[in-house]
């Protein structure tokens, strides 16, 4: 059986016996998580990579804390989310805004989902602009739902909130997104 055929949970078990398996886990997630950090924070690539390194070290140190039935992907997204928010707040308190202009392609969600939800054709540039003005919690939940394609249960595990709250948050985020787009005169 090749390493790429192992499930995340199998790789976690193997990693505790052989660190090289942990390397496979890191490779599997680094690109996805890097994009996630960019999308929710707008940080420069340097800072996003530093965050990610810290995330993988935390994952390694706390590997024994991971257990089913939670999905490994939810667990690692949670650690990434917490680390990003923590860095964001530290920088904000030090007065060091480190947000940069990001590649528009990062804001290309699953079109069909977005069109279905908002009943509109939306350009990635417009999405990026609107997301930038949303509050942290609304941006996070929209990114997880429409860009990372996470289920309600997964979002509940990542943000550590009840599933019912996820539904409410998504509904409010969509309203907030609509309001912000009309405020910015962005016609999709």
């Amino acid at each position: 059986m090749k390493r790429q055929d192992f499930t995340d949970e199998q790789l976690v078990g193997k990693s505790l016996e052989d660190i090289d398996f942990f390397g496979s886990l890191v490779e599997r997630y680094e690109k996805r998580l890097l994009n996630y950090v960019f999308r929710i924070s707008g940080f420069s690539p340097e800072i996003a990579e530093e965050i990610l390194q810290e995330v993988f070290l935390k994952v390694w140190k706390n590997l024994n804390d991971f257990s089913a039935p939670m999905k490994f992907s939810s667990w690692i997204y949670r650690i990434t989310h917490n680390e990003t928010i923590s860095t964001f707040r530290k920088m904000k308190s030090r007065g060091e805004p480190e947000q940069v202009e990001l590649d528009e392609n990062l804001f290309l969600p699953d079109k069909s989902d977005f069109v279905e939800e908002f009943d509109q054709e939306i350009s990635s540039l417009a999405i990026k602009k609107v997301l930038a003005v949303l509050t942290e919690k609304y941006r996070e939940v929209l990114v997880l739902r429409f860009f990372e394609d996470k289920s309600y249960e997964e979002i509940s595990d990542i943000l550590q909130v009840p599933s019912g709250t996820v539904a409410t948050l998504i509904a409010r985020s969509k309203n907030s997104f609509r309001e912000a787009s009309s405020r910015l005169n962005l016609n999709f």
Partner: peptide, 26 residues
């Protein structure tokens, strides 16, 4: 640093600093 460099850097740090996962009992 690109993604593959992140992976290499993380593994190198774990090995050189001999970082081990915390015990399950903890």
């Amino acid at each position: 640093m690109n993604p593959t460099k992140i992976s290499a850097s993380v593994l190198k740090k774990i090995k050189t600093q001999n970082i081990v996962p915390k015990s399950k009992w903890q």
